[in-house]
């Protein structure tokens, strides 16, 4: 469904990713692992279109979208839930979710999507009128994921959703990810937490300093000695 073919990309002409190939099949939950600064966030920003591609191709459902604008990619259903959640602090939960459904394709489906989000996160249903900036970190993560679903995501890209959350919330967030996966959502999950990710993902990629060091089924990646090496930066 989503295919990155030999992509080199970075900021101001300095490549962060070098010749990276990653693919995600429909309905798959793919984990993207690696130490800090391995290029994980850059990779999903390339998919979102906020970091330009220097060489290589990005394919979505068989079409080359390397040149498609960031806005149009959201309409295609490539939706990122950014690291640090980045909720709109002075807007209510409801408004955050409505803004998630801002793009033209998602607008007609907003009511239905909203019900779906609230069924997944009943807690948000209770706090629709509250300003998002006053929520706890875990609740903000729910808003961020809900906002991404409202955008009509067909591939949901989660950037470090467990970052800074209590263990209880981390567990809850991963349950939600499993639930979405079970509903057939295609998910690209960026995580630093190796053991948690391999338990939930179908397949994993391990990035090391901008190149793919290991890839394969989750269990195999977990046992591969190169994975540990990539994490330790050896």
């Amino acid at each position: 469904m989503l295919e990155m073919q030999g992509v080199t990309a970075g900021y101001d002409g300095v490549p962060v990713l070098r010749d990276v190939s990653v693919n995600v099949a429909r309905g798959e939950l793919v984990g993207l692992l690696g130490a800090n600064n391995a290029g994980k966030s850059t990779l999903i920003n390339v998919v979102s279109g906020t970091v330009p591609i220097m060489s290589g191709r990005l394919m979505f459902e068989g079409e080359d979208i390397s040149k498609t604008s960031a806005q149009d990619r959201v309409e295609l259903g490539l939706v990122q839930v950014p690291e640090g959640r980045l909720v709109f602090p002075q807007m209510s939960v409801r408004e955050n979710l409505l803004l998630g459904g801002y793009n033209r394709k998602a607008r007609p489906a907003r009511a239905g999507n909203m019900d779906h989000v609230i069924s997944l996160f009943p807690r948000l249903g209770e706090r629709l009128g509250q300003l998002a900036g006053t929520l706890s970190g875990g609740e903000q993560q729910m808003v961020a994921i809900g906002r991404g679903m409202m955008a009509g995501a067909r591939v949901l890209m989660l950037d470090e959703p467990s970052l800074g959350l209590s263990p209880l919330f981390v567990q809850f967030i991963f349950e939600i990810i499993d639930k979405l996966h079970a509903e057939g959502m295609t998910i690209l999950l960026v995580e630093q937490n190796l053991s948690l990710t391999v338990r939930h993902a179908d397949r994993c990629y391990v990035l090391e300093r901008g190149v793919v060091a290991v890839e394969g089924a989750s269990a195999a990646v977990a046992e591969d000695p190169r994975t540990r090496a990539a994490y330790l930066g050896m």
């Binding site: 906020t50 806005q71 959201v74 939706v79 950014p82």
Partner: peptide
């Protein structure tokens, strides 16, 4: 409030 997130939501 959060231009980066707005852009990621298709604004």
């Amino acid at each position: 409030q959060e231009p980066r997130a707005a852009a990621l939501m298709g604004v």
